[in-house]
Design a protein around this nucleic acid. Sequence first.
DNA 1: TACATGAACCTGTTCATACCTGTCTACTGT
DNA 2: ACAGTAGACAGGTATGAACAGGTTCATGTA
Lengths: 226, 226
Amino acid sequence: MYNSVVPEQVRHSKRSRLVSDLAAHIRSGRLSRGDRLPGENQLAARYSVSRGTVRSALAELQKQDLITTETGVGSFVTFDGAPLDQEIGWARALADSGADATVELLGIDLAEADGLVVVRRRRSAAGRPVSLETALIPASAVPATGLVDDSITATLAAAGLRGVEGEQTISVVPLDAADAALLDRAPGTPFLQAVRVTRAADGALVEQVTSLLDPERFRFHLRFSS
Amino acid sequence: MYNSVVPEQVRHSKRSRLVSDLAAHIRSGRLSRGDRLPGENQLAARYSVSRGTVRSALAELQKQDLITTETGVGSFVTFDGAPLDQEIGWARALADSGADATVELLGIDLAEADGLVVVRRRRSAAGRPVSLETALIPASAVPATGLVDDSITATLAAAGLRGVEGEQTISVVPLDAADAALLDRAPGTPFLQAVRVTRAADGALVEQVTSLLDPERFRFHLRFSS
DNA sequence: TACATGAACCTGTTCATACCTGTCTACTGT
DNA sequence: ACAGTAGACAGGTATGAACAGGTTCATGTA
């Protein structure tokens, strides 16, 4: 449960919802060892429950050895959450082959607002475009000299940004005219579209990547375990 | 998928009317996953029946895996409209959950070898086929009378088979002639294909499900953390 | 510098109250 | 025999309030 995809379980009683939400924050690393939880009254206000319910949930977290509580002080995380491994637990697109795969940087631009940088790249195999990738990352993470090592991952790491959670949607869309031209396909050709949003421990955006992938060359593979 | 929903037979008993009315609310999405049903006393008043009758109806809904009940709290919807899979949230297909979603059982056959049973089902929405599902499950899990409650999940659970790990592949494939005919599409139409293999703790096969999904109505959504 | 004070904030505990499901029993009409 | 009714009681869940006591820190005083 820690490593892989989070099941979207239905939580019923307010107590169990609180427990699973806080436990998820702790296990995922959003709250890390030594961090102090908000006070019982603050938690009660934030989750719109009574203090009694909060205390009941905290008692459960204590029993799970996720937190300890000190009288007059507060509750503290006592569990080491593993940070997100870039490779594990993700749905990765696997190209069927591609010895002569190339990546072109189509452009790095500032988004109109929000202090985001748009990075567009095109991947080709055997001389033919196979995917188009549009990444939005915080402008503050990008040095004036451009991407670090020409890699988004390296740039984000250098800026100290680390994704700990996120979500991804996979669908099929017809290519619009502009994308079709870049990919050397007819407009309307169905392509795989993957949108991935990654967030840091504090919920700040780390990256949002929209990929258009040739369905003949890419498929998504995903392992799960409970 | 549940015969009990659609029988044309007149429902005379108050209990049956209650069951089918609530089930319709849930399946149509008017009550969606996680929603809390009115309390037993409120339901009794609203339907002008006794609380005993309400409880009997709720028990039936529980058996159909539409709701769960927590003592002291209430009953909650655990069915999410048009799910690809009832209980697992890793990669969930979201359909429009139209009010008139139906499931047809196309056939249950023994595979040539390996002691597997092949279950083929077709889902339709608004009268049009939207997905085709081929499930392979161990023959030993299937009673001679057929699926338990017309549900693969229920059948596997009744046989004590529980998936704890597995993998899933999502790709786009053109429909072959046979599938195209069943889905009322032109051969070659690109469809989403999801292949999911689930295994038990000892590595034994629990189920392998191959789904062909209308890319206009389905997409895969996935959350991940740590 | 050293210390006492007190305000602010925190957890620990108890209580009454409301509402919910779980269960049982007695009764009615078909 | 069966489906439904009506009521009562037990026990779980959640709320809101009050009060006690621990911790921290800034402030004022000797």
